[in-house]
Write a protein that binds this DNA or RNA. Structure first.
Lengths: 195, 195, 195, 195
DNA sequence: CATGAATGAGGCTTCATTCAT
DNA sequence: AATGAATGAAGCCTCATTCAT
């Protein structure tokens, strides 16, 4: 019955928050945002509905929180790549590798993101920020192509990121039988012919 | 005095059905299936909620109906292309043209389809059929590549359809500012270099 | 196209009305009043919903109409019996015979009546009349017993009609396997021992 | 501060559940199953509609729950009687007493059961179980008659239970002015003449 | 006489959210 | 920090009834 220390409390808090986030992500990705209820998330996280509302203002806020995490993850990727090398082709290669491996390791995140990116609802408040991020990434990718000496770097960036998203989307749709490795090879081949 | 003739009734019915379909498509595409209420659809179509249920068994049946229409549209495309020419490269060119123009002319349909294809819910019953269709299209596209003499025709088909979907998805996400024409050129260039 | 004569119209009217009544009775009895829709009745009768409302003010009015018919039928029975003989025992015997044969020949009517008699709803307006009828029948039956010289004729009337209703209710509940003939014998035996 | 204990919660739950059950029983019996709305039940129980669905899966499940309670009550009666004595006549006497007193003390239950037993709808799933129960009771009653040395014990059981149901049904229909005590005497007299 | 398209009130049910403990 | 009983708005759907033809 001795009162918990501040640190102990903080640990407990973080554990609960993380459990909620994970359960929510899993369920949102598997069943869709609207088809997932707060009750399911709380049950999945092993906490009460009340506690969930201690940490997250609302269902939408919980979704926002998860999305911000994914966005941050993406930013980290890009930073690392730029830090690793200054060679455009190599950066593109790393980006392809990183994208495929991220999606393969964690289909949940990306399926959720893809599904949400096509829905205007449930994300209303976040849309501008997400578009901004996409724009930012596009600029970064264009810069990579520019470094390879490619003509029409910006168009290539648009095209490249569309290809990447297209392949990964199909992978998420079709799952296990998708020839994901072959597709990765094809992408690399066709964007980095010299390698 | 006398009741309306069968034909008169059929005209009236079709008018209402079409209004409902259109309103539903528009709203489903814009706001998402779950975020669209039957009331909104009825209001959008200018009919009562009750009438909607005279023609569609349920909200899900309405969605199904719309999806079946899109699927039929896609089938028509493929048939026409195959009927038009036997030259693989020409077929691919026509497919690109048809896809881009379809999406540009009717963004609603395709945005809805894309969004739904990533949702596990709200489509449970239709998923098998849709996957079968996709498989069928893939085979048809592979056959086109085979005719061009391309190596690894099946892989190319996977890749090609991913590219197409990726580009069109981005177009649907970004809307007006997307360089859609440039992307079309790039797609054609990169898959039909000889033209 | 020659206009129908008044008589022809009347024939048509009566045919439609009768078809509606029959369909309604059948459906009310089989599926219950609340579980039967006007659409079902109209379909069952082979007429349109609109025509149904030409002849019956409302669903409840249709029910009332049917009930009145049953009541009238009951009155006819009693009158016939009293006209046929003045002997109490014989009257009772006839009543038993008539009741059993009516129920056996037309379970629909009686099942509906029994079900409704226990529901306060859907009959609100008719209840007083029905109670009055029951009271009237009770008096008539008591008079029959009185003629047989039985003591406590009124109590016997209550008891007798309860027995009759109980047996017939069980028959309607259990249907085919109910030993209806044996029960009739038992009723006769126990109320008319001297026969 | 701390959450309620399991026991406290259980008490609270049972209170609400019981309030809902009672309100539902009262309203179902008075107005009929179909004419009673969930809103009415919730209002009658002094809880929200939502809470009702915390405890009962559906309106039909609520009805089932109530029916199961009545069935259990009936089973208890029969068991007690058989445990109390082995004398057939005494058992029958007890059964009559118990039935009359049960119905007088709790008209709601029995009116609801009687009404439902004549409805094909709203009970579909339960019908087989109820028929089985009735069959079981019939066998038990036949056994009682057999012990009294009566001939045709099974027929007597059918007849006896029809009489009981008939009398009690009339009581429920006519209410206060029904000569219930006289009827009880008559039943006992006529089935247990030797007493 | 006859039709059936159309309406809208009202019923059942779900679920995000609150709050007493 | 934690619980879960309780709420009520909102969604889907049914169906008695109306009315233009």
């Amino acid at each position: 019955m001795s009162p918990r220390s501040k640190q102990q409390n903080e640990v407990i808090r973080q554990k609960s928050i993380e459990a909620i986030r994970e359960a929510a992500l899993e369920l949102f990705a598997r069943n869709g945002y609207h088809s997932t209820s707060i009750s399911q998330i709380a049950a999945g996280a092993g906490v009460s509905k009340g506690l969930l509302y201690n940490y997250f203002e609302s269902k939408e806020a919980l979704l926002r929180d998860i999305i911000m995490e994914v966005v941050a993850l993406g930013d980290t990727f890009m930073s690392r790549i730029r830090a690793a090398t200054d060679d455009g082709a190599e950066q593109i290669r790393m980006l392809v590798e990183a994208s495929f491996s991220a999606v393969q390791q964690n289909r949940h995140y990306w399926k959720l993101m893809a599904a949400l990116s096509l829905q205007t609802d449930a994300l209303s408040g976040l849309m501008p920020m997400l578009k901004e991020k996409q724009e930012e990434n596009l600029r970064a990718i264009a810069e990579m192509f520019r470094k390879t000496g490619a003509a029409r770097a910006r168009e290539m960036a648009y095209y490249f990121s569309a290809v990447l998203d297209g392949v990964l989307m199909h992978y998420m749709q079709l799952g296990g039988n998708y020839p994901i490795e072959e597709m990765k090879s094809l992408v690399l081949e066709r964007f980095l012919p010299e390698c």
